[in-house]
Amino acid sequence: MIPQQPVYLEDKVDEIRQSGRLDYRSQALPTWCPGCGYYSVTEGLANALNDLQIEKENTVVVSGIGCASRFPFFMDTYGFHTLHGRALPVATGIKVANEKLTVVAIGGDGDGFAIGGGHIPHAARRNVDITYILFDNGIYGLTKGQVSPTSAIGFKTSTSPFENRDAPLNPLLMLLSYGASWVGQTYAGWPHHLAGLVQQALEHPGFSYLHVLSPCVTFDKTDRTYQNLDLTVRELDSDHDSSDLALAMQAASDTRSPALGLYYTSQRETLGQALDQVALRAGAGG
């Protein structure tokens, strides 16, 4: 997926301007470290929104706290940079208040699976019609390099100086078992794949979870680096059936060579539809 042909900067800038996707980017310069995997997600989301022709004033990007969660500042959409771990419930509130909005929740692995871990199952089971993009760098970036719930065993950080001994979570397996109706995985090093999946996730009616493997170039020099990920990631089997939950779980269990792509998707009542049903039963307006 690495581009084969040389790319000239002017051509690229021109192409980007014309595409309109720059409209979705704010003028604030990202505060991320150069090379951080998060850039590609910004790009990917802008692309997808543009391609889907979703008005930026009808888009809200909601984040928690962390490097990843800085995301809303770099988009020219409505944004809510909330609290550490609370992106999902805030996003849920926004969606419940206004179903017309496209709501994207963003956060890191600490934000989502440590402090905010209690919210994920509930967003998933309620099938809130939002997209949750989780940037998994296996480390706490913003607080400068501590161990995270997805850090590998043996990983050394400032708070695991004698190597991490806590087993990492398997986010994909969790989300599949929580009942998320759309679960996919991508990699910051494959920006086109990433952009494609972001778009699919946005199009899915219901709760879509996109797991992004993303290196922290500053605090992780040994584990989840571009070099290591480039060698281990692969695409999901071409005959993968994304309507088969058991198959998806099986694929998610392979953590040694993470597969990228759409693991699972299904259609069921969203929270918004459920609330409309409640209103009907209650005899709304009567």
Partner: peptide
């Protein structure tokens, strides 16, 4: 629900106030 309102029982009080603030923001 009879009056066009929407109510969700959340997973805890943090989620409750978070969602209420999200809705207030919206």
């Amino acid at each position: 629900p009879r009056h066009g309102g929407r109510l969700v029982q959340t997973e805890d009080e943090i989620a409750a106030i978070s969602a209420a603030i999200g809705a207030g923001y919206a």
